[in-house]
Write a protein that binds this DNA or RNA. Sequence first.
DNA 1: GTTGGTGCAAACGCTTTGCACTTGG
DNA 2: CCAAGTGCAAAGCGTTTGCACCAAC
Lengths: 149, 149
Amino acid sequence: MSWAENVLKDLSAHGHRVTAPRRAILDRIMQYSQPFSAEQLFRDLGGETGPIGRATIYRTVDLLVEDGWLSRVHWSATKETHAASEHAYVPVEQGHQHHMICRKCGTVISFEGCDIETLLGGLARRLNFKIEGHWLEVYGLCQVCQRAE
Amino acid sequence: MSWAENVLKDLSAHGHRVTAPRRAILDRIMQYSQPFSAEQLFRDLGGETGPIGRATIYRTVDLLVEDGWLSRVHWSATKETHAASEHAYVPVEQGHQHHMICRKCGTVISFEGCDIETLLGGLARRLNFKIEGHWLEVYGLCQVCQRAE
DNA sequence: GTTGGTGCAAACGCTTTGCACTTGG
DNA sequence: CCAAGTGCAAAGCGTTTGCACCAAC
């Protein structure tokens, strides 16, 4: 059961429709080995002359983020200038996940089961801060790029 | 020695000039108890009719981020739509810091000495991933807002 | 047949840029 | 002095929106 299939199933389960544009978008997302942006997705699906409108891409990406099938990361392939820097996304199986992102090739390794709240628990207790969630992202070099350096 | 004073000293130490607009910007930043955006800073300093141009604000913010005196966070006061969502910043003493941000009032608590790399060390070793840096941000409720709920 | 989805194009809003003017050291 | 900094206005560009049309269920 691929990620795209899971998403499609979940979409119809939530009363959403399974349309051709959505299929195409999901298929394209699965081919990325790096974080991707909405704009990039638009280009890769044919851009201005392609069959899928820009609005549809953005709307679908938003939908997927809302339903927990895409996760936003801060990594950006294009050295962010950051004039309206593109937001980047990574497909995830649903649930709490974090990412290790290779600064060179952009490969993403997802992992769960982080113990950060435990780690910060003492600090939070001392400060009387009630932790409700957190954002963690790790940067570095993947195995392949380490060798290449 | 206030944050603004430290920044000014650092600026001239790096061959930058201490100008009236920069003083005004630093002073205003110190008054925030929440993450702020460049646009907000612009408005608070008088906006279109004020003495400081928008470009100066953006250039100064960038400068401060580069020199490590401002840190970008993901929290946003305005429910991010995220059409060109404003980037938010927090003043920091230089060095590696993380933030706990209250989801209600936006109060920021900075802390250092996180042991995340230690925590993730085992995982990274197993995956042959070489950690070079990380981004961590914690969300929740500060002491005051907990009581208010 | 409904109504959710789509495409188009225009609008939006944050951010950047070019250029002539000002000012700090 | 003169290079760094500033202000202005225009341009950039990712993202959103209004609306008429289309197609999934």
